[in-house]
Design a protein around this nucleic acid. Sequence first.
DNA 1: TATATTCTTGATAACTTCTTGAACAAGATT
DNA 2: AATCTTGTTCAAGAAGTTATCAAGAATATA
Lengths: 233, 233
Amino acid sequence: MNSDSSQRILIVDDDLAIRRFLRTSLVAQGYTVSETNSGEGALLDVINKRPDLVILDIGLPDMDGIEVTRSVRQWTKIPIIILSVLDQEKEKIAALDAGADDYLTKPFSIGELTARMRVAFRHATLPVNMPNFESGALEVDLARRIVTVRGKEISLTPTEYELLRILIQDAGKVLTHQQIIRTLWGDIYQPEMHHLLRVNISNLRKKIEPDASRPKYIFTEPGIGYRLKLVDK
Amino acid sequence: MNSDSSQRILIVDDDLAIRRFLRTSLVAQGYTVSETNSGEGALLDVINKRPDLVILDIGLPDMDGIEVTRSVRQWTKIPIIILSVLDQEKEKIAALDAGADDYLTKPFSIGELTARMRVAFRHATLPVNMPNFESGALEVDLARRIVTVRGKEISLTPTEYELLRILIQDAGKVLTHQQIIRTLWGDIYQPEMHHLLRVNISNLRKKIEPDASRPKYIFTEPGIGYRLKLVDK
DNA sequence: TATATTCTTGATAACTTCTTGAACAAGATT
DNA sequence: AATCTTGTTCAAGAAGTTATCAAGAATATA
């Protein structure tokens, strides 16, 4: 948190008028506000200013708000509320699945925005910024997307990496097949997805486990799902 | 089997057509669905059916959806998504501040609803504040689905775990054979199920009791059922 | 376009869990 | 003491799940 304990909000929007309007309204509500007008700026400010919540316009000059969301989500769970002029279903779903916590269509009322911000703060757990993950000989640099086993860097396919990231995000806990499938592939849930998940688990194990038939990291919970075990050094 | 790892959704709406529509769509997505048409029913079902998420219409015959939300929030953080025909700012804010996790205005697309459900599940998996059960040397982490006896982690089959969970839910109380059987295997009650239950109790005891022939945790109530004893440390 | 990489699917093997029957035990009833 | 009822345990086959390999399809890269 901040020294004056007020919550810091980062506003990302290329429209000056909207930034002004939001800043005024939020400052009046007692929030501390900083602003930027580009995707690049957003990524930098999330790192440097460590805001407690991001309000992100989806249409930015340099990069898509969804891209920004995905990028930020690689290493932090900081609440992100997306703003958009479009009420398009596809965009909404894409934004939410990329890791956004809420999606508001302009015009919206400040009352609703702040209510949804309060929901987001309620959800926010203690800062779970984990730039790197370690368990035994396995190390994952989530910010740089680098995985090493016993110091040796290994390369994972996009799906394998995403799967590992999902397991890391809830390390120690059992994730059901359904949960993993939904996070990995979204809405297209179908029974044959289970098979696909198994193949990917198998491939991932081959790359990170010393002995794939006797897993040290990725444990199977028969009938339920998988669990990434936390091992002390 | 019933100890299915699929997520359970409770739909609360007095409009049969909407319930049907939601049920069909959600079942197709692999969710397990139960329904009720009143606020009273909702409160009961949240307790008895232990859903993982509630979809709650705000306009119910007996009580307001906001009331229901407030009431449920007294004791659980289970995700609640409110549905409404009104796009009224005041109502939205009241619902969100009462503890709802999201608010959707009808008509909405199923795609958006399921995307917002995924957001809710993402939030719900974070807090580790689910009650842990402890009795003597037996510890059950219900959020992580981990059972330890004298600090040592033990693995239970889905049925065994579900059985233990049922006993924990009413720890100290006697659960009749019928109650357990129905919760475990649904309504297909048959006399030979008793034998099946006994075998499972036996197997569970072997895993958690120091001396299975002299149970410390799971007590037999002859002619009635079983009881999980609460033991102080 | 060719080449490499990754994803998806089917076949099969290995494994775990479920279900059932049989044997046994303890207490209650006759 | 014999019998009945209720409960426990063991073990084996059936049913269901999970792991792995490999080949073709799709996608990305050169």
